[in-house]
Amino acid sequence: MFSKTDTPAPTPRPTSPNAAKSVLGSDLVITGDVTSTGSVEIHGQLDGNLNARGLVIGNEGVVNGTVSAETLEVKGKLDGRVSTENLTLRASAVVQADITYAATSIESGAVIQGRFTLAKKA
């Protein structure tokens, strides 16, 4: 008469290096914090903190806040604090930030103001 039905377990969010990529369009303005287990590409504006596996700030992208990402590529504007393993600043980048990094690449033409700190190896 009564039987136990098994409900399927919820699908876990991807945490692999191939996790999803989220793109924030140029017409999008977000005020608040963003967290992703994958990568995020910003062409609009983020006023808040971001924590993701990877971050690309597009040519028209603007980020104001604290960023924590394994990889970070900046083509647009970044203002705040950054903690990253691999930092790439393209020629079009305009950065005003305190940055903690393990490896960096800076193209000629990038505008930078702030403090760079090499991360201590564990």
Rank of each mutant, 00 (worst) to 15 (best):
residue 88 T to F: 15
residue 51 N to L: 05
residue 116 F to K: 07
residue 115 R to H: 12
residue 33 D to Q: 08
residue 44 G to K: 07
residue 85 E to F: 06
residue 47 D to R: 12
residue 28 L to R: 02
residue 57 I to G: 14
residue 92 S to W: 10
residue 92 S to I: 04
residue 86 N to K: 11
residue 27 D to N: 15
residue 106 I to D: 00
residue 33 D to E: 10
residue 76 G to Q: 10
residue 86 N to Q: 08
residue 86 N to G: 11
residue 70 E to Q: 15
residue 48 G to V: 02
residue 66 T to L: 00
residue 86 N to S: 12
residue 44 G to M: 10
residue 82 V to T: 02
residue 80 G to R: 01
residue 101 Y to K: 09
residue 95 V to M: 11
residue 47 D to H: 13
residue 117 T to K: 15
residue 45 Q to S: 15
residue 76 G to V: 03
residue 61 G to A: 06
residue 81 R to P: 00
residue 82 V to C: 01
residue 36 S to G: 08
residue 84 T to N: 04
residue 108 S to P: 09
residue 105 S to K: 13
residue 115 R to L: 12
residue 113 Q to E: 14
residue 51 N to P: 05
residue 102 A to Q: 15
residue 36 S to E: 02
residue 85 E to T: 12
residue 33 D to V: 09
residue 30 I to M: 07
residue 27 D to R: 13
residue 102 A to Y: 12
residue 44 G to T: 09
residue 64 N to P: 00
residue 95 V to W: 14
residue 33 D to N: 14
residue 96 Q to Y: 03
residue 58 G to A: 08
residue 80 G to N: 04
residue 31 T to I: 01
residue 102 A to I: 05
residue 34 V to M: 11
residue 96 Q to A: 13
residue 54 G to P: 03
residue 87 L to I: 05
residue 57 I to W: 13
residue 69 A to S: 14
residue 75 K to G: 08
residue 99 I to G: 09
residue 39 S to N: 11
residue 71 T to W: 09
residue 26 S to G: 11
residue 63 V to D: 06
residue 107 E to D: 15
residue 73 E to Q: 12
residue 109 G to T: 09
residue 58 G to V: 02
residue 82 V to L: 00
residue 85 E to S: 10
residue 68 S to Q: 13
residue 41 E to D: 08
residue 85 E to Y: 13
residue 71 T to S: 15
